[in-house]
Design a binder for these strands. Structure first.
Length: 350
DNA sequence: AAGGCGGGGGA
DNA sequence: TCCCCAGCCTT
C-alpha cells in the first residue's frame, strides 16, 4: 500500500465533517481557506458561518465596505487577510467577470492567496493536481521520512515542496490534500501524538528512532519586543472620541482610543508632562482607569493603560483620523481585541 | 533571507 | 513559558 493510499484509507474512517467540505464553490472554499490561515478550525468555524451568511457570493463581498468586512473579522487576528480579501473580491469582479477562478495560476493573482491557498482551492474546487503544503503536511512528511532540514529554511521549503508533489495522489488530488491535513491535525499532532494507533507507524522514520517530539525542526524567530500604549478615554455629550490606526504597524485601519506610545513604562504624571500630550490636550490631567493590561502578540508584548481625560472640544483638525462616535455606535466599528474587551468591560459591566 | 502580522489553546 | 495553528507579504 502506497503512502497516499494509507493516508486516504485513514481519512475514510476519521474524516471531520466540516461545512466547507460540502461544496465545490471556489468562492466559499476561498472564504474558508483565508479564514483558516494560521488559525485553528475551531476558532475559524464561527467566522466562516457568519461570512457565508452575510456574503453568499463574491459580488456581495466586493460591494461591502472594508469597514464592514473588518468588523465581521474582529477578533480573528491577522487583519490584512480581511483587507486583502476585499481587494481580491474586487479583482475577481473586474478581471474574472465575477466568476471565481479555480486555476492555480489565476488564484495566485489574488491578494492574500499564496502557494498553499492556490493549491487548496484549485484541488478542492476543480480537482487540479497541486499538492498543499501547510503546517500539517510539513509535520507529517518531516516525521515519516525523518527529514531534519528545518521546515522554514529555504532549503527545507524546496525539499518538502518537491516531496509533497511526488506523493500527491493524482487521481484524487482534492481528497488526498484534505486527507493529509486531517491526518496531521488529528493523528500526527504537534504535541504527544498517539503513535500506537497510527497506520503509518511501521514505516515512520521518526517513530523508529523515537524522534516524534523533535521533528519537524524549525528555525527560531526573534524575541518579542515590549511596547507601552497609553489610551485616553474622552467622552463628550454621550460621544466617545475614537482614532483609526494607519496602514503601517499592527492593527492597520482598526479603531481605538487616541493614544500615545512610549518606549518604557510611564505613570500618569510623566504622560501629562510629555510635550506630545500637551500638544494634543493642553493642561488636561489623565486619570488612570484600572490596571495595566498585558496584551501578548506573537511578536510583541503590549502593556496598555487606560486613562480618563476631561477635555472639551478637542481640536479634531489636528488629527484627521480622529472622530466622535455615539457610544451606542461603537459596536459598529472594527476594533482590536485590546479595545473591544476594554469597552465591553467598561461600558457594559453591571 | 528575515521580519511583520493576532489571538487562542495546549502542555 | 513556549509552541503551534488549512500562511502571506514586504523589504
Amino acid at each position: 500500500m502506497s503512502f497516499s493510499d494509507r493516508i486516504l484509507a485513514w481519512y475514510q474512517s476519521h474524516k471531520r465533517p466540516l461545512p466547507w467540505r460540502e461544496t465545490k464553490n471556489p468562492y466559499v472554499i476561498w472564504l474558508s481557506e483565508i479564514i483558516l490561515q494560521q488559525t485553528r478550525v475551531e476558532q475559524g468555524l464561527p467566522y466562516f458561518l457568519r461570512f457565508v451568511e452575510e456574503f453568499p457570493n463574491v459580488t456581495n463581498f466586493a460591494r461591502a465596505s472594508e469597514g464592514r468586512i473588518l468588523r465581521l473579522w474582529q477578533g480573528l487576528g491577522y487583519y490584512s487577510r480581511a483587507r486583502n480579501m476585499h481587494k481580491a473580491s474586487k479583482l475577481v469582479l473586474e478581471e474574472f467577470s465575477g466568476d471565481f477562478p479555480t486555476q492555480f495560476q489565476d488564484l495566485l493573482r489574488l491578494p492574500g492567496v499564496g502557494e498553499y491557498t492556490a493549491a487548496a482551492i484549485s484541488s478542492f474546487a476543480a480537482n487540479q493536481p497541486h499538492a498543499v503544503l501547510d503546517g500539517n503536511v510539513f509535520r507529517v512528511l518531516s516525521r515519516y521520512f525523518g527529514i531534519e532540514e528545518p521546515i522554514n529554511s529555504t532549503a527545507g521549503k524546496k525539499i518538502f515542496s518537491q516531496l509533497a508533489d511526488e506523493l500527491l495522489d493524482r487521481q484524487h488530488p482534492g481528497e488526498y490534500n484534505q486527507a493529509i491535513m486531517d491526518f496531521g491535525a488529528l493523528q500526527c499532532k504537534p504535541k504527544s501524538p498517539d503513535c500506537s494507533v497510527c497506520p503509518l507507524l511501521i514505516d515512520c522514520e521518526a517513530y523508529k528512532t523515537n524522534r516524534q517530539d523533535e521533528l519537524p525542526k524549525k528555525l527560531k524567530g526573534k524575541k518579542s519586543k515590549d511596547r507601552y500604549f497609553h489610551y485616553f478615554l474622552i467622552e463628550q455629550d454621550g460621544q466617545v472620541l475614537m482614532s483609526q490606526r494607519g496602514e503601517e504597524d499592527v492593527w492597520a485601519n482598526l479603531y481605538e482610543f487616541p493614544m500615545i506610545e512610549s518606549a518604557a513604562h510611564m505613570d500618569a504624571q510623566e504622560i501629562q508632562d510629555l510635550p506630545e500630550f500637551q500638544g494634543l490636550f493642553k493642561d488636561a490631567a489623565p486619570v488612570l482607569i484600572g490596571d495595566v493590561r498585558k496584551h501578548v502578540l506573537s511578536h510583541q508584548n503590549i502593556y496598555a493603560r487606560f486613562y480618563k481625560l476631561d477635555v472639551e472640544n478637542v481640536e479634531l483638525a489636528k488629527k484627521s483620523h480622529w472622530n466622535y462616535f455615539l457610544s451606542e455606535n461603537l459596536d459598529k466599528l472594527a476594533k482590536h481585541k485590546l479595545i473591544s474587551s476594554f469597552i465591553e468591560h467598561y461600558f457594559f459591566a453591571n
